[in-house]
Structures are given as structure tokens and as C-alpha cells.
């Protein structure tokens, strides 16, 4: 018995995706074996008590402000019934404004920024809300195909209520001309599912004379198993 329904067809990428060259030797060739959810999949690590307050600001790690456009990235983490996922660990990482990661294997000839590492963590609050202050990442070239560039993106890692809720994804920016050319985002067949990885600019999240605001809401797998809980909030 699956407690969580499988995602609708086309709303998740398949690993076999020839346009993304790194999959060629890494995507399994055999079909996965369907597994009923056991207590192992329905439990999951909890991070509520992690002391990570202060790690949601990525702009104050150096001796000065990092280069680039300061942005707020915020949103709500909810389950498939629209209920807020409280105390969810949200981890993000990204390139700097020039499109360079603080990583020994990133050889893009763009400058590192001594004031920007590009990693942050936060826990969602009682309403499932998270909020980061960071800078807008730059696009960067990669070797997937001739003249290949990744659109600007922020990587997200989330733990929900259960092991089966685990999600690693990427958030993109509206209007980016590289989006139709990106084999990683275009690996998702369903157009609406692609669109949901697009953040939206919002004046309500924008801080006057400080930072532009982008909203990125996230839906994690999971439904309330018992009928005794309060009704879903939408």
C-alpha cells in the first residue's frame, strides 16, 4: 500500500535524458522496482532542533557586502494537501554574481567573490515559510554541448515529513532567455511542472531601498494519513 500517491506522469524528469550528457553513463537502464511504503519510508530525519538561525543570510559572511544584486528568496513549503510543512530543513547553494561557484572543480574563468560563499540553511516556521537573503546568481557556461550555458538558478535541498518526501531541485528566474535552451530544466516533460520551478518577482517581498523579492513555493510529497487532523489550509 502506497500512502503517498506517485507523482502524475510527466511532472518529474526521467533519469534517462540524452540531451543532458552526464546522464549517459549514470542513468539506470532497468526499471525501478515498485516498493510499498514501509515504516522506513514513512519516517524521516527531523532537523527541528538544529541551531542554524543566522545561516539564512548569505550576504554577511565576509568583511564587506558581496558583489551583485541583493535579493530576498522566500516561499512556503506545503504538502500535497496544502498543509504547511513545519520545521523543514531547507538548504540552498548557488554561484556568485559572476557565475562562479566556490568549488575546487569549478574552472569557469570568472572571479570568485571573497565576500560570498553561496550556501545557506533555514528551517521553515509554523506556517511552512522560509526566507533567504542572497545575491542573484550569474549564468555560467558548461561543457554539455557547444556554447552551453546554464540559466541563473539556485539549488534547493529539502527534507519533509518522511524519507519519501526528500527533494533536491533548482529554482529559476522569470524571463531568463537561457531557459528554453537548458536540457536540465527541459528534462521535465510537463510544461506546468517546469513553470513551477520558476520563481516569481514580487513587490510584496521586495525590501525598499535594499533587495528585490522573489517567491518560490515548494510542494513536498506527503498526505495526512489519519482523518483526525485539522482540515487542510489553503
Amino acid at each position: 500500500m502506497k500512502i503517498y500517491p506517485p507523482p502524475p506522469p510527466g511532472t518529474q524528469p526521467e533519469n534517462a535524458c540524452d540531451a543532458y550528457r552526464s546522464t549517459l553513463l549514470r542513468a539506470p537502464r532497468l526499471a525501478p522496482v515498485p516498493l510499498p511504503h514501509t515504516p522506513t519510508e514513512l519516517a524521516g530525519p527531523r532537523f527541528d532542533r538544529l541551531s542554524i538561525s543566522g545561516e539564512s543570510n548569505l550576504t554577511n559572511r565576509g568583511s564587506a557586502e558581496p558583489q551583485g544584486q541583493r535579493i530576498v528568496v522566500a516561499g512556503k513549503v506545503i504538502d500535497e494537501d496544502g498543509r504547511p510543512v513545519r520545521g523543514a530543513l531547507v538548504e540552498i547553494w548557488q554561484a556568485n554574481a559572476a557565475g562562479r561557484y566556490l568549488h575546487s572543480r569549478d574552472h569557469h574563468p570568472a572571479p570568485l567573490d571573497p565576500n560570498f560563499a553561496g550556501a545557506g540553511r533555514a528551517l521553515t516556521d509554523d506556517d511552512g515559510v522560509y526566507r533567504f537573503l542572497t545575491i542573484r546568481p550569474g549564468a555560467y557556461p558548461w561543457r554539455n554541448h557547444p556554447n552551453a550555458w546554464r540559466p541563473a538558478h539556485i539549488h534547493f535541498s529539502l527534507f519533509g515529513a518522511a524519507w519519501a518526501s526528500r527533494l533536491v531541485t533548482q529554482m529559476y528566474f522569470p524571463g531568463d532567455p537561457l531557459i528554453p535552451l537548458d536540457p536540465i530544466l527541459q528534462s521535465i516533460p510537463d510544461e506546468e511542472a517546469k513553470r513551477r520551478l520558476m520563481s516569481s518577482f514580487e513587490l510584496d517581498l521586495t525590501e525598499p531601498v535594499w533587495a528585490l523579492g522573489y517567491r518560490f513555493n515548494i510542494v513536498l510529497r506527503g498526505r495526512e494519513a489519519t482523518p483526525f487532523e485539522e482540515p487542510p489550509c489553503r
Binding site: 533536491v168 531541485t169 520551478l197
Partner: peptide, 10 residues
């Protein structure tokens, strides 16, 4: 039900 957010590579 809502549809879970799509996965992307790490």
C-alpha cells in the same frame, strides 16, 4: 491534491 515540485540534479 497538489502536485509535488519537480526534482532537478544536485
Amino acid at each position: 491534491p497538489l502536485i509535488p515540485t519537480a526534482s532537478q540534479t544536485v
